[in-house]
Design a protein around this nucleic acid. Structure first.
Lengths: 232, 232
DNA sequence: CGCAAACTTGATGTTGCTCAAGCTAGGTGG
DNA sequence: CCACCTAGCTTGAGCAACATCAAGTTTGCG
């Protein structure tokens, strides 16, 4: 059962998908599965970057800190995402488990070798990196120019997308209000108040703090794009 | 926010540097030089991404807009940087010339072909993309968690780095206060007031609006990293 | 010389932060 | 089984940082 679980998981790795059978098997050869409990650190900002990871199950937070403790979460990573492609051999952010997390770990050196050996592999990674860059730019727009309700609405829609929900759907929120605040450049109080307001206005429902139901996706989308007329 | 400029000695183009002579010549074969006057648009958000560019001379601004006109500048690009590696064939930001700009343009299709053909090319692009991603994450920290004086100090140091100035140096500021504000998530008035305050405190001098002299780099660095005790 | 664009400065306003309670739910031990 | 404890969440009151609105100033250019 364990062996079966292993092979199934590995075959589902996004990284392996789209590669030749040989390429995929090379990749598997240098991979090991890892597990982290909530709150555990994968690596910290400034650590030597000796591994590349892919999230198999669960959710991570990536963040940077200022010396006085102010934190900016740069992303929440769900299954299928990579991390550790550090430019200069040094991690530029900290990675921590939010939920129970399963990871596929590749040794950096072997991984680098594969980039040269396996046709199409570098191109694939380039596409992934470009996509992340684009997401980072959208996040800059959010952080620099959106108001609190627009930020929260954007976050909720992002979570819905990530979970493949597209109508009026129930979303799981595995992270705390503190995580959400540090992702959106807000305080926990502002996040909480804004969610309350969205509930009062009928855009969402909040059965529990970690489950949110989207009740009016159209209005939420308008709000997220800054097209809402007033109020809030 | 970008990788520091590559030196563009023999081959003139950063992209060609580090490649085999054959690779470099292939690259040259598909490139054309372009020129833009200040304020001209290279491409706009939503355009089809049919070209990849490298900045040869001058400075560009990249930005995203909200429907109501709010603008977030995601980066200022100086010589040696690329743009146009769009993930889905659609530009995700607008690119405009700030100064007179000279560019090297590569047709997308030919460029993609080279990625497969020239050894080490994809890896090189991957390194560039990783570096930009890292810069984007630093900018998120700035936008989400730094106060106005910290943002402005960070910007000044970034400009100094970009121009290779490392002591107390005179910096050229080719962009307007409006550009700076839209890059830092501030208004022009706040940028102006903050610069005035930095001048009053002796950290900088402002001989003209577009030239700034760094007078106390240490304090500026402390400020940029949020380590300054108080005041401002 | 006059105009326009960019910048600076001042007065006032608002958003979101800080500080301060209370509330809720899940986990633990009696 | 229940009472307690704690971490996380919500709510309220007051405040500060930055935005907005409104003049003025400077500079480059026709």
């Amino acid at each position: 059962m364990q062996a079966q679980a292993f092979s199934t998981t590995t075959a589902e790795l996004a990284l392996a998908g789209g590669l030749s059978p040989q390429g995929a098997s090379h990749l598997m050869a240098i991979s090991t599965l890892q597990h982290k409990a909530p709150g555990e650190t994968l690596f910290a900002e400034g650590d030597e970057a000796d591994s590349v990871y892919e999230v198999v199950r669960g959710m991570l937070r990536l963040y940077k800190l200022l010396p006085d403790g102010r934190r900016q979460i740069t992303g929440f990573l769900a299954a299928g995402h990579f991390l550790g492609l550090a430019p200069e051999g040094v991690c530029v952010y900290t990675a921590e488990a939010i939920t129970e997390v399963t990871l596929c770990r590749y040794k950096r050196k072997a991984f680098d070798h594969l980039i040269d050996e396996v046709p199409g592999f570098a191109k694939r990674l380039l596409a992934v990196a470009s996509h992340e860059l684009s997401a980072a730019q959208s996040q800059m727009l959010l952080l620099g120019r959106k108001a609190a309700p627009e930020k929260v609405a954007s976050f909720l829609l992002m979570m819905a997308d990530q979970q493949g929900k597209d109508g009026e759907a129930m979303i799981d929120i595995p992270m705390t209000r503190s995580d959400i605040g540090d992702y959106l450049g807000l305080t926990i109080e502002t996040v909480s108040r804004t969610l309350t307001k969205l509930r009062q206005d009928g855009l969402i429902a909040l059965p529990t703090p970690d489950r949110i139901k989207i009740r009016d996706r159209d209005q939420l989308e308008e709000l997220a794009e800054g097209e809402a007329e007033a109020a809030l």
